[in-house]
């Protein structure tokens, strides 16, 4: 998997020709539109309700088109001026800003009904300048985002985490800034179709009512164990811990059993005592 965020900062990667190529590429456009559609679905806005949506890292407005089709009014920002120029050429319907997500955003509190962001968060985890501290930038990003969202609004981030540590870092910062929610993984068993959506809730609309984290696609069979299925408990295995030492086959129980059998046959047998089947000392 190629990781453009390791090569250069986003405003350079998506500068000039690359911005046009990116938008003209029908495969990228299709993937972006699909992810934006899924993010919109996860936003879970009421049907027929025209919301005011923030698109973080809107680029050339590929994901904005999806929002527009659904009847929402959107505002987008991106750090790459070239991408925004392409968006202008394409006559994107939303208002555009040139802004760095890591510097926080300057929107009034409670402005937006929701927020989507496609393939952006992993960029924030990189330090492209000496003055960049990923954790601080994430912190500033999430805290300003939290305040610019309406209470109970959702923020959906599709991103490509590099490893578990990155997920932990992002989730940790988001939770510290007041968000609730978690990670939704679509198609967890597929290598290519697997997509990570960070699904965050900015507070609760009705106090005390927890929002349900939506289920990822393609993980039906993985849910809670069904009735009759294998249930996992944390019960420890009872009995002796198996060791490498060989245990004697003919132990006391075996001797007692044999003696009992002999008695039943009427054979002359020594009576059981504490000396029965006791180990002999070596010098015997």
């Amino acid at each position: 998997m190629s990781r453009p965020e390791h090569l250069a900062p986003p405003e350079i990667i998506y500068g000039g020709d690359e911005a046009k190529k990116y938008t003209a590429n029908s495969r990228i456009a299709a993937i972006q539109a699909e992810m934006a559609g899924r993010a919109l679905e996860l936003l879970n806005l009421p049907e027929g309700f025209p919301g005011y949506i923030l698109d973080i890292g809107c680029g050339s407005g590929l994901s904005g088109e999806v929002l527009e089709e659904a009847g929402h009014i959107w505002v987008g920002f991106d750090i790459a001026p070239a991408m925004l120029e392409v968006a202008l050429e394409q006559e994107a319907s939303g208002d555009l800003f040139l802004q760095d997500a890591g510097q926080g955003m300057a929107f009034r509190p409670g402005t937006f009904d929701g927020c989507i962001s496609i393939s952006v968060l992993q960029w924030l985890c990189n330090a492209d300048k000496a003055s960049h501290h990923p954790k601080q930038r994430l912190q500033r990003f999430f805290s300003t985002l939290y305040s610019s969202l309406r209470r109970g609004a959702r923020a959906i981030f599709q991103f490509y985490p590099e490893n578990d540590d990155q997920i932990q870092l992002i989730m940790g910062v988001a939770v510290r800034c007041g968000f609730e929610g978690g990670l939704v993984v679509d198609y967890p068993n597929s290598k290519k179709a697997k997509k990570f959506y960070l699904c965050l809730f900015a507070g609760q609309e009705v106090p005390g009512m927890q929002q349900q984290l939506p289920r990822g696609l393609g993980e039906e069979e993985m849910g809670e164990p069904q009735e009759g299925g294998v249930s996992y408990t944390s019960k420890k295995r009872t009995g002796r811990v198996s060791s490498n030492k060989r245990r004697p086959l003919k132990d006391k129980n075996w001797v007692l059993k044999k003696k009992e059998q002999a008695r039943l046959k009427g054979e002359k047998t020594a009576s059981d005592s504490r000396y029965t089947a006791r180990k002999r000392r070596p010098q015997f």
Binding site: L98, A106, S131
Partner: peptide, 14 residues
């Protein structure tokens, strides 16, 4: 410019 406000800050303002 061109309807796009430049909201970028200099490093000491972040």
């Amino acid at each position: 410019r061109d309807g796009i406000p430049n909201m970028l800050l200099a490093e000491h303002e972040v």
